[in-house]
Amino acid sequence: MFEVRNLSKVYNSGVINKASLKAVDDVTFSVDRGETVGIIGESGCGKTSLAKMVLKLLKISSGSMYLNGEDVSSIRGEKLKSYRRKVQIIFQNPESSINPHMKIYDCIAEVLRINKLASRKSEDEKALIYQLISMVGLQQEHLNRYSWELSGGQIQRVALSRVLALKPELLVADEPTSMLDVSVQAQVLTLLRSMQREQGFAMLFISHDLDVVRVMCDRVIVMFMGKIVESGTVDQVFSHPCHNYTKSLLEEYECLR
């Protein structure tokens, strides 16, 4: 359904001493409908750059992306708008992804208004929001609060409800639980899984926690220094790692057991 071919991202820096850094280097992969693909790798290996390019929040240096067979690597205007409706993201840091000046109700309503799903302050809008928050397990009293009055797990739920409002085809989850506690992490991950079963979206799950990836994903991609060094089903990669980096990653992980 979603395909990425030879995608690269180069960051240029410096005026006099020009330097360039290849954050993502010649990456090719695909995601099917209803499937969860995990991306693992150390911090700074280009996982987040890749996610931002998929969302088209970052300009692509070279390569191409396809959604449902359609080339989306250089779309603009209306087409980009409709693309962003289909592809959504949950960020790593829930606190900073929600405007602290707005009440939770307005944060969710904003998404509906921008995408013209309901008219401003109508009964429809209210009903839709109530439906959304009950889906993610929040209460109506939470709508009148500000983001700093909620816990990390609750904010991540708000972020998820905003995403679900648009019924996306692809959801990019950029380390959605790395800032959360084990018990809250379990809550958010189960929720994410049940929502996926309900709505059938594909998921690109970025994480460095191998345990989480093992539980959540069907397939897994291992990135190292901007390149994909290994990919395959979770069982394959975890039981028979081929690349040295994957091996050392798994070894280190087993040590902590």
Binding site: S151, V182, S183, A186, Q187, T190, V215
Partner: peptide, 13 residues
């Protein structure tokens, strides 16, 4: 509730 121990959710806050 750890992922490797089955991800059993502890409800409530």
């Amino acid at each position: 509730s750890q992922p490797c121990k089955g991800l059993n959710v502890l409800n409530g806050t």
